[in-house]
Amino acid sequence: MASVGRILSHDIRQNIQNFKSLFGKDCRWLSSQAIETQAKSSKENADDKRKVDDRENTAPLEFRFKYPEFLPDPNAAYRNSTRERLERMDMMARRAHIDIPTFYVGSILAVTLSDSHAVGKTNRFVGICIERKGCGLRASFRLRNAIDKQGMEVVYNMYDPTIQKVECLRLEKRLDDKLLYLRDCPIEYSTFPFDMEPELIDETAPVRINTLKVPLKPPPWLERWERQDLKGVQEFEVNEKRRRKAEKHKTPWEEFDLMKIYRQTIPMEDQKDIFAEVYSDLHKLEITRRKMARKRKFNRPDKPT
């Protein structure tokens, strides 16, 4: 019995190890069930797979990565089903008027918005998305670019009705959930031309991951990067004191804290209900977007040779 238990616990630990790579700070899309399905035996796995397939008929599982803002705050003290439904209705009403493309942290976006201080004109900003935050109508993203060699960051609310257009110029992911360390990198790593052409991408292919590793400038830094487990940063040296303190502040047990993961996630059943509600509308919007993209592709004149 004890040996079985040990094997099981070993199994679970291994699964957590696999799972670790996914584990970031903002992980509302994770679920208790996703872990369980991996930990079960092969026969049970097959059963679960069938269940998952059934779910895919309603809303694909990648929706939690594509539309993370539809998942509410997992803190039970802030949850209310009526409020969440009303919020989703408002979000869909806004999405009917503006095409918000799928994007991730690391994608390059261009945002056009009406400016109340320049009547009749628009304001366009291009930059790399370094952070995605908030859920529901509070959802926002932060764009960074360098203008005249000066780093600029703009936070946009995704459902702000003054936003006229959001374009995804380059759809890709980076190695980290937040790219705030670009503030302490040489400026060329956050410089993007304003006249960038949107790249044509295959919608069906998996999203490209940019494995670029950026160098950090020497300290002083804005944050203690040595304490954060950054993947998209080249090896860097810190002095003895900072290294010692970083060692002291490590919390390696947190990734095994199942209760913590549970508290930070929305249960799979809730996710299913949430996406079932908005799936048909989102799917329709996706189809129209794809059609528009194809049209644009067709209309583009060939380059004179």
Partner: peptide, 11 residues
Amino acid sequence: PFTEPTIQFSE
């Protein structure tokens, strides 16, 4: 209202 189109500022 969210059902209305994007805000455009006029003179």
